Computed example of a mutant assay.
Amino acid sequence: FTKICDVLIEEILNELPQKYELPPRETEWLRKMLEHTVKGGKMNRGLMVVESGVAIIGKDNITNTKLCQLAVLGWAIEWLQAWLLVADDIMDSSVTRRGQPCWYKTLGDAWYIAINDAVTIEAFVYRMIKHHFGYDSDLQLQLLDLMMETTLQTELGQLSDTLCDVLTLSDLTPERWQLIVKYKTSFYSFYLSVAFAMTLAGVTDKEAYNAARDILIEMGVYFQAQDDFLDCYGSHEVLGKIGTDIADKKCGWLFTKAYHELANETQKAYLDEHYGKCTVDSPEEIKIKELYTELGLKEIYAKYEQDSYDKIMSMKDSQAGETLNRAGVPWTVFEKFLAKVYKR
């Protein structure tokens, strides 16, 4: 799978000087940027395209060509993830990503070039799909439509997330959190992987796509709650990044539970005074983490995690599960995806 990424980088970089008159210095910049930004993650989104495609098409029927195409689509999502993270890290003033400095942090005073780099990676994604699936215009159109729709959904989720910077803490409600994570995380991190595999495998039943979406959105919401929990309680070494949700005034699962459901007036007043106004590892941030623990959020999260797992697994025998089974999409697709993120 990782070798396909190297092939895609070389394809694009070899094309740029010939077709777009790109000078060597700019080409080398893009090589360094791609090596830094598109590699190094867990690759769950990309690998799930391959695993889902194999499960739907069948191990005995899958060809090497189809495997390579699935891998290309997997990397299309990984590159989508990369450009979103490059932009997100700038907006959030993040320091590290995947165990190394954020891309914009490596550029010093020229950090703003990373904004152009982000949208350049996005353009490469569409170029990649056109190059590898242009032989079938209908297939190419379906894949591009999926990618463009998912990108729009994600950007709208990102807007709702970023807008929290100018809202009051009382506006950061559990309902707003649910909306943000559905659009910012679930569609591109979960649904797109399976939808790409279904499309390449020739699944045409619209109801099957709707059923997959419902299951995978539920999974994505759970995943983001988990991510919010780990931002507070996970170690830097495990996460590969420094948790900044408290300092960044994020509309996170822990905060919305604490502020709107659990905290007394004194505790809410402390959050009003310091949430989003303190720095990482400051006494105020540490105190907020202690407050979360005092409110029993570790135990509440543990129950939420188990309940979410049980709810998702129960969908196997629901109407959605039956619809997918009739369309040739086995439950193992969803079971494997959930196994990658459950209690990570």
Rank of each mutant, 00 (worst) to 15 (best):
30 L>G: 00
246 I>H: 03
135 Y>T: 13
120 T>S: 13
6 D>K: 03
158 Q>K: 10
324 L>Y: 03
132 H>M: 00
128 M>F: 06
83 W>R: 02
301 Y>D: 06
17 P>I: 06
336 K>C: 02
318 S>N: 09
293 T>F: 03
311 K>Y: 15
193 S>W: 05
112 Y>F: 11
171 D>K: 02
39 K>R: 14
134 G>D: 15
273 E>R: 11
165 D>G: 02
38 V>L: 09
208 A>T: 06
164 C>Q: 12
186 S>N: 10
198 M>P: 11
14 N>T: 11
17 P>G: 01
250 K>Q: 04
112 Y>W: 15
84 L>H: 13
263 A>N: 03
303 K>H: 12
278 C>P: 12
167 L>S: 12
215 I>G: 00
199 T>M: 10
201 A>Q: 11
126 Y>Q: 10
49 V>L: 08
133 F>Y: 06
225 A>C: 14
315 M>D: 07
215 I>W: 01
115 I>K: 05
206 K>C: 06
29 W>G: 01
340 K>V: 01
231 D>A: 08
208 A>Q: 14
94 S>L: 11
111 W>M: 06
292 Y>D: 03
173 T>F: 08
61 N>F: 03
144 L>K: 05
252 G>R: 05
311 K>W: 09
289 K>Q: 12
82 A>M: 06
22 L>G: 01
158 Q>G: 14
307 D>T: 14
316 K>F: 02
28 E>Y: 05
294 E>F: 06
20 Y>C: 08
242 I>G: 04
88 D>H: 08
58 G>K: 05
293 T>I: 03
120 T>P: 04
158 Q>T: 11
267 Q>R: 08
16 L>D: 01
235 S>R: 09
145 D>V: 02
67 L>M: 07
160 S>A: 11
32 K>Q: 07
296 G>I: 00
41 G>R: 07
162 T>S: 13
172 L>N: 04
264 N>M: 09
190 F>Q: 07
108 G>I: 07
344 R>K: 14
193 S>Q: 02
28 E>A: 00
88 D>F: 11
188 Y>H: 03
108 G>E: 12
258 A>S: 13
148 M>Q: 15
150 T>W: 04
54 V>M: 10
27 T>R: 07
14 N>P: 03
289 K>D: 05
109 D>V: 11
275 Y>I: 05
38 V>H: 08
278 C>F: 14
83 W>M: 04
263 A>V: 03
28 E>V: 00
244 T>F: 02
226 Q>M: 00
134 G>T: 12
13 L>G: 06
67 L>C: 02
100 Q>L: 13
